[in-house]
Write a protein that binds this DNA or RNA. Structure first.
Length: 280
DNA sequence: CTACCATCCTGGTTGC
DNA sequence: TGCAACCAGGATGGTA
């Protein structure tokens, strides 16, 4: 379940291994993930150098020295793992391998295969079908309550559901949507368009703060997630509400046995966690 | 245009 | 203990 903070943590771990390095080999171990690998994928990246490793929303973007960019999305169970050398055996669900001129190997491992890899020209990358409709980057300086309010205009769905729509704001997933709503004191069931100027300001700031704290903690390790060096993030220890049904939220002095504590509801088919006392 | 639902996939957990 | 049912969920593509 890599969301923006997990992808950013992986990017930071991969940068020293990939940036400025030449790919001397690549291995593709199956025909497709969520969608097919690009035609001739291993041959097309072999011999290329990685100019920069960037991130857009939950996508990793590796700019190559031939004007192409490799896009990788980790889906829900995808990992990028660094090996000091090419492993002599692959594990189940190791789908692609990148070998650098230092002899290191980066393995794309994705049991559920909701991830994908594609190649597209760096020039005009923002028009790639997977990127074209993405909303604002929440950690960019231009992100604000005003920008968020624009994205929520006309939306009658609950604010929690709207926050998961990557066209509204790019990079939030189920965990950080719940956490950001808690931090801003907003009831996840409120209609998105009715949050108001002041609420959008608080929410935009909460989104930014939660994501930054999560990145500082190396992401959240639940089930599948590992950083590129194999390490675990620890932001899950800082969850205020996510996966904490029935427990006291950090800012409530009420005992769970009195108030019921954090509540779990289902919105758009996904779990939402919130504190009814703190979120209105 | 928005909303809603099914779909993809595997592994871990729960319930009998 | 075994096994089936269920759940986790990012994104898309279909239909209403």
């Amino acid at each position: 379940m890599p969301e923006l903070p997990e992808v950013e943590t992986i990017r930071q771990g991969l940068r020293p291994v990939l940036e400025g390095r030449r790919l001397v080999g690549a291995i593709q171990r199956r025909a497709d993930l969520r969608r097919p690998f690009p035609d001739g994928f291993p041959e097309r990246i072999t011999g290329r150098s990685v100019v920069a490793l960037r991130r857009r929303a939950k996508y990793l973007l590796a700019d190559l020295d031939d004007g192409m960019t490799m896009l990788a999305h980790l889906g829900m169970s995808g990992r990028m793992l660094i090996h000091a050398a090419l492993p002599n055996a692959f594990a189940d669900h190791d789908h692609a391998v990148f070998i650098t001129d230092e002899g290191k190997a980066v393995v794309f491992h994705d049991p559920r295969r909701f991830g994908l890899i594609d190649l597209a020209p760096t020039d005009g990358l923002e028009r790639h079908p997977l990127l074209a409709r993405l909303g604002p980057e929440p950690l960019d300086p231009g992100f604000s309550g005003r920008v968020l309010a624009e994205g929520l205009e006309g939306r009658r769905s609950p604010i929690k559901v709207a926050l998961l729509d990557q066209r509204v704001v790019a990079g939030l997933g189920n965990i950080y949507a719940s956490e950001a709503l808690y931090a801003s004191g907003i009831d996840p069931s409120r209609p998105a368009a009715e949050i108001g100027t002041e609420g959008c300001g608080r929410l935009a700031e909460a989104i930014r703060a939660v994501l930054e704290r999560a990145i500082a903690a190396g992401g959240s390790s639940l089930r599948d997630y590992r950083a590129a060096d194999g390490s675990l993030g620890y932001f899950q220890l800082g969850f205020a509400v996510y996966d904490r049904e029935g427990r006291a939220c950090p800012d409530c002095d009420c005992a769970p046995e009195v108030s019921g504590g954090v509540r779990r509801i289902v919105q758009g088919g996904r779990a939402t966690f919130f504190c009814p006392r703190r979120q209105r």
